[in-house]
């Protein structure tokens, strides 16, 4: 029992260490705006004919969505579409992917999170698709 408790405490401390590195970065909503519109919106529009505007969800809904990290109803992940690997795969056709080819994944994720939070239905500047 004591061992389990100690182990849990150790794991929590470790996780805190990981999340701290993410929290230290202050998302750049303008960079997030460019990636969201040029990659996310552009692909959604061409693939499904419907792009999700930031103002279609509340801040809490966006936070939950990004936390869950489930894209296409869980078929894949959101982070996958933000990864360097994905950007490299589309950069020949997508200027935003090319522009941000070397941007660290976590930074870009925080940028997008900052943009959708700001542009959410109840955000500081609700944002449409364009």
């Amino acid at each position: 029992m004591t061992f389990a408790r100690t182990l849990t405490a150790a794991a929590a401390l470790a996780l805190l260490g990981v999340s701290f590195s993410a929290q230290a970065y202050d998302g750049d909503w303008k960079r997030g705006r460019v990636y969201y519109r040029s990659v996310c919106t552009s692909c959604h529009t061409s693939q499904s004919g419907h792009a999700f505007a930031p103002n279609e969800k509340t801040k809490a809904e966006w936070a939950a969505y990004l936390q869950a990290d489930k894209h296409a109803k869980g078929k894949d992940t959101v982070k996958q579409y933000i990864s360097k690997q994905y950007r490299a795969s589309i950069k020949a056709q997508n200027k935003a992917a090319e522009k941000f080819a070397d941007t660290p994944d976590q930074e870009l994720f925080e940028d997008i999170k900052a943009f959708v939070t700001k542009g959410a239905k109840d955000g500081d500047s609700p944002a449409g698709c364009s």
Binding site: A10, A14, G17, S21, P104, E107
Partner: peptide, 27 residues
């Protein structure tokens, strides 16, 4: 546990480094 505590953040850091292979975030 001490090894674990000392090691996990390292794994975390390595993990995030592996995730991104990248410089620390900067303004």
């Amino acid at each position: 546990c001490a090894i674990l505590v000392a090691g996990l953040p390292g794994v975390g850091v390595l993990g995030s480094a592996a995730l991104a292979d990248e410089a620390p975030p900067v303004k």
